[in-house]
Amino acid sequence: MARRKKIYEGKAKILYEGPEPGTIVQYFKDDATAFNAEKRQVIEGKGVLNNRLSEFFMTGLNAIGVPTHFIKRLNMREQLVRAVEIIPLEIVVRNVAAGSLAKRLGMEEGADLPRPIVEYYYKDDKLGDPLVTEEHIAAFGWASQADMDDMVALALRVNDYLSGLMYGVGIKLVDFKIEVGRVYDGDFQRLIVADEISPDSCRLWDMETGKKLDKDVFRRDLGNLADAYTEVAQRLGVMPKQATQMGKPRLIN
């Protein structure tokens, strides 16, 4: 069997050349990182959970007309996605004060924000993914004003979808980040949601207890990260509720 060509390896995923032009195979690793990869650990089963959860979220977004790069899941760790030109920004939507926002503005963590706040971060690990403004984005040519308007619209639609989905299973969507890519149909360009949506890229709190069900479990040494992600998957019906996280999780095909 021919060996696949690796395109890129990041902290949580490996990208391989897809079977057809314009496609990529996205492989989810078990690696967990925090603080710009200063803290690292391999957590067995994490990649499987993130693959299945990202599939679930992307499929739901596609179904309501929010375009994503997701095509189909290939196996427990891989999915086939559309190749896109990634805009070098992370778009963060915040519903509750937490993380760097709470620290920067001296806010109490957990305070509800008066409305969703959208922030941009420049994707550069060496710089620590700094917060940037629309002025920076326009000046350096990372995206046009029309692109920024489209990115905000996409991010807020994702926020509406995820917030409602999580509310239905007793989880508060505190914040999340997405990446956006350009696709071209001839001379026509459009923007679509890319990368992944998973507990790695969201803050998720139990609505009653405030228990964290996201990567803050790893960042703050609050318990077993795979158990937290398994609980999210169980609540959403991605895996059976009677299943326990023992080694590699057994998920519904």
Score class of each variant (00 low, 15 high):
M1R: 13
K6L: 13
I7R: 11
I7Q: 02
G10D: 10
G10W: 03
K11L: 06
G18N: 07
G18T: 03
P21N: 12
G22F: 15
Q26G: 01
Y27C: 14
F28E: 01
K29C: 08
K29E: 11
D30H: 05
D30P: 07
T33G: 11
A34L: 07
F35G: 05
F35D: 14
K39S: 03
V42I: 12
G45I: 02
G45Q: 09
G47A: 03
L49R: 08
N51A: 10
R52K: 15
L53H: 03
S54Y: 12
F57C: 07
F57D: 05
L61N: 05
N62P: 01
A63Q: 15
I64D: 00
I64S: 07
G65H: 11
K72C: 05
K72Q: 13
R73N: 06
N75Q: 06
M76G: 14
R77P: 06
E78A: 03
Q79R: 14
Q79S: 08
L80C: 05
L80G: 04
A83I: 01
P88G: 08
L89D: 12
E90D: 12
R94C: 10
R94I: 07
A97W: 09
G99I: 04
L101M: 15
L101S: 07
G106I: 02
M107C: 05
A111W: 11
L113E: 09
E119R: 09
Y120D: 09
D124W: 01
T133P: 02
A138C: 10
A138F: 04
S144H: 08
A146Y: 10
D147C: 04
M148W: 03
V152F: 01
A153K: 15
A153D: 12
L154W: 04
R157C: 00
R157A: 03
N159G: 03
N159K: 09
Y161D: 00
S163I: 01
S163H: 11
S163T: 13
L165F: 11
M166D: 02
G168C: 03
I171K: 14
K177Q: 04
G181Y: 12
Y184L: 08
Y184G: 02
F188E: 13
F188D: 10
Q189V: 10
Q189M: 15
Q189H: 06
R190Q: 13
L191G: 09
I192V: 15
V193A: 06
D195R: 01
D195W: 10
E196M: 03
I197V: 06
P199A: 01
S201N: 00
R203F: 02
R203C: 06
W205Y: 07
W205I: 00
T209Y: 15
K211C: 04
K212Q: 14
L213T: 02
D216N: 09
V217R: 15
F218M: 09
D221C: 05
L222N: 02
G223E: 11
G223A: 03
G223Q: 11
N224M: 07
A226E: 12
Y229C: 02
Y229S: 05
T230C: 15
V232S: 10
R235Q: 04
L236A: 09
V238H: 02
P240K: 13
A243P: 05
M246T: 06
P249V: 01
P249T: 00
R250A: 04
L251E: 12
